[in-house]
Design a protein around this nucleic acid. Structure first.
Lengths: 153, 153
DNA sequence: GCTTGACTTAAACCTTACTTTAACTTTTAC
DNA sequence: GTAAAAGTTAAAGTAAGGTTTAAGTCAAGC
């Protein structure tokens, strides 16, 4: 065991995840750990980055499945290089850009809705999708693509 | 029954929600319906707006509980006035602004991470929270407030 | 007036993302 | 060397947000 080995409770404290979540993530293949002779987990410091990444991703609304895919790009065996992080950051950035774009579109739609005379069912495109929907298929078709997809959860 | 009464399947088609979801939302108090003598649901057109609202909210990641709170501001008994919508839109807008802000902060954090020389564990603030966390309590404390709160799901 | 498609209910089931529990073992500190 | 704190597992439980099923009723068209 290297002297950088971290126990479960240390990782829990420093990452903000509950020990049960750490075990869960390990079962799900998002993180890994070494074991002591007695079978207890010992983590390398690298796990803290992966956990920070997981936290950020979850908080932005990505499913664990998506997070796993992105983390699969990061080597577990060697210290990630700058190129590793750069590749992931770029992937990540696209996803964030999409989501930001979708939120902005929704917000601006609502803004115009405030001023559009919503009393008329026919005029408000943001909150009154049925005419478009009736013509173009089911769902809120006025929304940007990202927001029309089914939710992860 | 007024002649504007919509059946379940009509509302399902025009809103994009499955009939089972409509019944679920009714149980949860997000929408209401009249009944025929035989006990079948008949919806007023107003329900389509509420459903569009629910859809947009869900897709942005709001919990149904939050949606219910916002929808509680909308009268079921009378046609919502411009003031009703305006009040809600403004509430909604704040929420969207917060979420957009959080996403932008995360994205920009990642951007700087690409260029910051992430090889050094000590330098990257976005993906390496442990030092701050160790000092300031558990969790990813470098994140904007919204993203540090527990997830709805 | 009857068939067919749409509708009704309660209850069970599903997925995601974890947490809790129970029974037991390791480590650490004194 | 022993007690307490921390760790282990499998399995069950939880919560949100619905969907599916089963068994039966209503409404519309011919």
């Amino acid at each position: 065991m290297l002297e950088e080995a971290l126990t479960v409770s240390e990782v829990a404290r420093r990452s903000g995840f509950a020990p049960s979540a750490l075990r869960f993530y390990e079962r799900e293949g998002l993180i890994t750990a070494q074991r002591t002779d007695g079978g207890q987990r010992r983590y390398g410091r690298i796990v803290l980055r992966r956990l920070a990444f997981i936290r950020a991703a979850r908080q932005v609304g990505l499913a664990l499945e998506e997070v796993r895919e992105v983390l699969a790009e990061l080597p577990e065996s060697r210290t990630p290089t700058r190129a590793d992080w750069s590749r992931i950051s770029r992937l990540w950035r696209e996803r964030l850009d999409e989501q930001i774009e979708a939120l902005v579109a929704l917000r601006d739609g609502l803004d115009s809705c405030i001023g559009c005379g919503c009393l008329s069912l026919k005029r408000c495109q943001t909150l009154n999708p049925q005419d478009i929907a009736a013509a173009g298929g089911p769902g809120a078709v006025y929304l940007p693509r990202r927001l029309r997809d089914p939710l992860p959860g």
